[in-house]
Design a protein around this nucleic acid. Sequence first.
RNA 1: GCGGGCGUGGCGGAACUGGUAGACGCACCGGACUUAAAAUCCGUAGGGCCGCAAGGCCCGUGCCGGUUCGACUCCGGCCGCCCGCACCA
Length: 816
Amino acid sequence: SGRLHMGHVRNYSLGDVVARFKRARGFNVLHPMGWDAFGLPAENAAMERGVDPRGWTYDNIARMRSELKELGLSIDWSREFATCDVEYYGKQQAWFLDLMKTGLVYRRESTVNWDPVDQTVLAIEQVVDGRGWRSGAVVEKRKLNQWFLRITDYADQLLDDLSTLDRWPDKVRLMQENWIGRSKGARFSFQFSGAAPAGHEAGLPVYTTRPDTLYGASFVGIAPDHPLAEQLASDPRVAAFIAECRKGGASEAEIETAEKIGFDTGLTVTHPFDPDWKLPVWIANFILMDYGTGAIFGCPAHDQRDLDFANKYKLPVKPVVLPPGEDPAAFTVSAEAYVGPGTIFNSQFLNGLEIEPAKLAAIERLESQGQGEGATVFRLRDWGVARQRGWGCPIPVVHCAKCGVVALPKSALPVKLPDDMDFSKPGNALARHPTWKDTTCPDCGGAATRETDTLDTFVDSSWYFARFTDTAADAPIDKAAADYWLPVDQYVGGIEHAVLHLLYARFVTKALADQGVLSVREPFAGLFTQGMVTHETYRRQNGEWIEPRSVEITADGNNRRGVLIETGEQIVIGDVEKMAKSKKNTVTPDEIFDVYGVDAARLFVLSDSPPERDTQWSASGVEGAWRFVNRVWNEFDSQPPGPAPAASADPKADELRAFTHRTIKGVTDAVESFRFNSGIARMYEFLNKLKEFPAEGATAPVLAARHEALSAFARLISPFTPHLAEEAWARIGGEGMVVSAPWPDFDPALTQDAVRILPVQVNGKRRGEISVAAGAEPADVEKIVLDDPEIARRLEGLTIRKVIVVKDRIVNIVAG
RNA sequence: GCGGGCGUGGCGGAACUGGUAGACGCACCGGACUUAAAAUCCGUAGGGCCGCAAGGCCCGUGCCGGUUCGACUCCGGCCGCCCGCACCA
C-alpha cells in the first residue's frame, strides 16, 4: 500500500520482540522481510493515476522499507525480496512446471466465481458472503477454462496433520478443519426405472452420510445445474424452473429466507433395496452441484431440509430411526426432523440396529449389489489459481494450435512480464499486449500463443518462507538451507488468513516436500494471531466523521466529553473500531514517531492489551509509554558511570537484588509465553521500585545492587525499546552493544523473600496476616498463628475444628 | 442453525496448575514545585455502612445453583456480547 499503519507497527513489533529475545537467549535467528507485491492495488493505481505498476510498487517498497527501518526491527535486510522480482517469480514458474509434471496442475472448464469489479476469477476461499474478498462486489458465476492446483489430493493430510500443529491457536485449526470438511458416508447410483435419459444409463449417483435411513427415502433430488437437469431443460418448463432457481442470490440473508422449491421431472428411479419401490426425481433449488455428486436421496423424517421440501410437495414422511423409549407404532415426524440417536425400524434387514452399525450394514449391501461403496467427501475444492490480470506471475505455458497446451521447458524461464503493458482500462493488460503473447511452440516449433493468465498472488505467498532460507539459490529452494531453518518456528499474522494463506502454504509445502525439494511437511510450527489496532471514533452532530487530531477530549470525573478544537462544537464519542480511513479514526506511525519516538510507540502497542486481543490506541496511552521511556533514562542517567563498587552486606541492597531477580524471572516467563503486556507491567513495577533506591546518597552496596539492576534492566527492555536500551547500556558501561548481549539470568534463590507474609483466614475470610520464615513447616506455622493475639481475638468463642496451612501461601482456620 | 471464544473498577487489563481479587497503565481526585500554567514529583482511590480518629463491618469477578477449609479459576443451568461457517445431503 505504500504506507505503514499501526497494525504493521504492532505486528512487526511482536515479531521483533520474539526475534531479539531468542537471539539474546543464544539462538541463531532468521528474521526476514519481504514484499507481497503483485496484485490489484498496483493495477488500480496504474489505472487511476496512469503510473507504471512496477515503478509504483518499487517506490512504495522503498518508502515502507525506510519506515520499517525507522521502527528499529532486527531484520536481516540482505535477504529482502519482492514477489514481483523476476528472480523470485521465475523460480516460482520453475516449481510450478514441476508440479505440472506430477499432475497436480490441471486445466478444465468450470463454473467460476467472477468478480465483476476486479474483472477476475476468485477462488472459493476468496468469496466472502457472496462477495469478492477485496472488491466487495457480488460475484457472478461464469464458465471458463481455468487452471487448478489439486489441493484436494492433500485433503486428508491437510486435515490429519492439523493435530501436529500444537503451537497453533485452536481457533485456526478448527476453521481449517471445518473448511476442509471431511464427511464419511456412501456413494451409490439409483437405476432409472423406465428408460434412462441418454448418457445416464449407468444410473444417477448420489452421496449420503446417512445410508442407514435409506428405507425412509421418499424422493431423489438433483441440483438445478446438474447435467441431467440441464439436459432436461430442452423442456421449456424445466428451463423456466432452472432460471427461477438462479435468481436467488448467494448472500446470507437470501439463503436464510429462500424457500425450497422443486420441479418433478416425471422420471423415477428404483430403490436400491426394493426393485418394486419407485422414487420420483425432482430438481430442487437447495441441492448444491459442487458438493458430493450434486444429487441426493431425500429422507424427510431425518433431515430438516428434506422435511421442509416434502411437506411443501406432499411427499411421504416415513420415520426409520426410533428415538430411545418411543413407541414404534405411535412415533411420527411432522414439523421437525429427528436427527438424534435411536434404533432403526421400518427398515427390513436394518431393523433393530443402532445408527452406526446400520450405516455399515447398508454400505455392505450396496457394495455386494455392485451399486455403490463407502465414500469420503470433502467440502474443500481444488484451488483455482489463474487470474486474468497483468500484474502477476505469468503461467509458464503456451497454447499451440497443433500440440495444444504445452508446458515450457525450464530453459525458457523466466517468462518475464513485458515492461510496457497498458493499464489504462479494466481487464487483462497482459492479454491485450500487442506482441508479448506471440511465441513459438517448444514442441513443434510452430507459432504459438503464451498463456496470458497469471497466478493468484496467494501462490506467491505460499512458499516465500522457503526462499528466505537462501535467496540466491539457483533452484527455487536450496534444500540444505531449508532443512536447516524450516519449519518457521514462530509465525505472526492476522486471523484473516486462517483458511486462505495458511491453508495454501501448508498445501504447497506438502506438494514440494513430495517433490523432494523440502523435508518439512508443515511450514509453520508456531502460529500467533495478533489482534487489531483500534481507536475511538468521533463524529460531529451532523454525523460527519472527524479525525482524532481535530478533537480535544476532557474528563469530568468519570464522564468524558469531546469538542472540535476549531469550533468548540461538542462532538459525539462513538464506538471503538478498527482503524480505517473511512471512519477517520486512524493515527499514522510517522506522526507518532515524530512526537513520542519509535520506542514509545512500540512499547505502547505491546503494553496495553494481550497480543492476541485488539488493542485500543489512545493519545494518553502512548504518552504513558513515553513517560516510562523518559523515567528509564533518568534512572540510568543518575547512576554514577563506571564499574559497580565492590559489594558488601547491606539489607537494603539485598532487597533490591531480590526484586531485580524476581523481575528478570517475571519478564522472561511473560515473554516466553507471549504475555508481553504482563512483561511490560513487571518492568513498570521494577522502575517504580528502583526509585526507592536513589543513586544519590546511596551506600556502596546499594550502588552495586543498582548497577546490577540497571545492567539487567537494559537487557530486559531491549526487545521492546531497542534504541533506549542501547543508550542505557552504553551509559552504564555495558560491554559491546546490548543487541548482542546475553539475556540476563536470575538466581532462583534470590527470587524468594526470606520472610513470607501469609494471610490468615478464618472460615475462608481474610482476618489478618503473620510473618514467617520462607519454607516454614505447617506445624510451626500453625503454632505461630494460634499464638498470635490478634488471631486469638478473632477466634474468641469459637471452637477450632481444623487448621489448613499451605506452605508459603496461606493459613485457613475452620472454626465454629 | 452448526462450531468456537469471551463476560473482573470509570477504561485497557492482572491474578502461574483453586490459596491476600483489582498488579501495571490510562483517566479522575488531592498535594508539592511555580507569580501562574505546562512538565515533573508525591499521595488517595472496587462499592456500601459505622466511627472524631485509629480502625471495624458487610457486599463484590454477568446471573442462579453445586463441589471445596477456600472458587475469577472446577462442575451444572441460564443471560449477554463477539468471531467463523452456513441449504455440505
